[in-house]
């Protein structure tokens, strides 16, 4: 009779995979957002997984001096009243803009104990954070600006985010939507910005309030915020053609 081997290759592989998935568990209830069906997205998934397992989560992105503030291109949507994807939102945004965003409300809903609607003045009454950071666009350019806003963590805690929550979804007046995980949502530099370079956020840069996610590429910092929805599960946006996690 053959002596049973203590460690077979198969067992070593299974053990390795099991410990790897153990590494993934603390990140989120679901190891990876399920948008990654194809080969291309496997690289993005590996990047996301390695960043979340190998990098400490709360390191601050470099902050600059006010002398470093640079010219700043406005790209993508530069006014949702002219070029929004959703006709109704386009109209609403046009009306809000005429009124200097007096009637604008940011809805915070989903897996929170106290859903609510925040006016611009409500957000400005909350503790503010000012940061001079570098915006890194996927196109290849960079620009430095000073942003003033309220940390997203403050708003989420005020709304009573539930312990089961794992993702924060954002919906914008130009028709875009996106989501981030709680690592980025609770990052101290992730803010809902209402000021840019010492003034109100201009319309081309996302008025009245935009998201700033300083640890990811520029397109995650959604402009023209309308609604925030906290979810337990990843909301699959379908194939947008763009990587969901862009810390790189």
């Amino acid at each position: 009779m053959e002596k049973p081997q203590l460690i077979t290759r198969r067992r070593a592989l299974i053990t390795g995979l099991a410990s790897l998935s153990g590494l993934m568990l603390p990140g989120c209830s679901q190891p990876l957002p399920p948008t990654y069906g194809n080969l291309l997205r496997m690289g993005d998934a590996l990047t996301y997984l390695s960043h979340r397992t190998l990098l400490p989560g709360q390191s601050l992105a470099k902050e600059y001096d006010s002398r470093d503030i640079s010219s700043f291109p406005a790209t993508g949507t530069t006014n949702p009243a002219d070029r929004g994807f959703v006709p109704e939102l386009r109209e609403v945004y046009g009306r809000l803009q005429k009124d200097a965003f007096q009637d604008w409300r940011l809805s915070v809903e989903g897996r929170v104990a106290r859903p609510g609607r925040f006016a611009l003045a409500d957000l400005q009454r909350l503790p503010a954070r000012k940061q001079i950071t570098r915006h890194t666009c996927e196109e290849g350019w960079t620009a430095i600006a000073e942003w003033t806003g309220v940390p997203l963590s403050v708003v989420l805690q005020k709304a009573g985010i539930l312990p089961s929550a794992r993702f924060v979804n954002f919906y914008a007046y130009d028709g875009f939507s996106d989501s981030i995980d709680l690592y980025d949502a609770f990052h101290p530099q992730t803010i809902l910005a209402y000021g840019m370079n010492g003034r109100s956020l201009p319309v081309p840069h996302g008025a009245p309030v935009r998201l700033r996610v300083e640890t990811q590429i520029g397109y995650k910092s959604l402009k023209y915020l309308q609604r925030i929805v906290v979810t337990d599960e990843f909301v699959d946006p379908g194939d947008t053609g763009w990587a969901w996690y862009v810390g790189i």
Partner: peptide, 16 residues
């Protein structure tokens, strides 16, 4: 879109 600050040579913004 104009300059961010009042001084000459201030950083500017422009829409694509």
């Amino acid at each position: 879109n104009g300059a961010f600050f009042g001084y000459a040579g201030s950083p500017v913004s422009a829409s694509r």
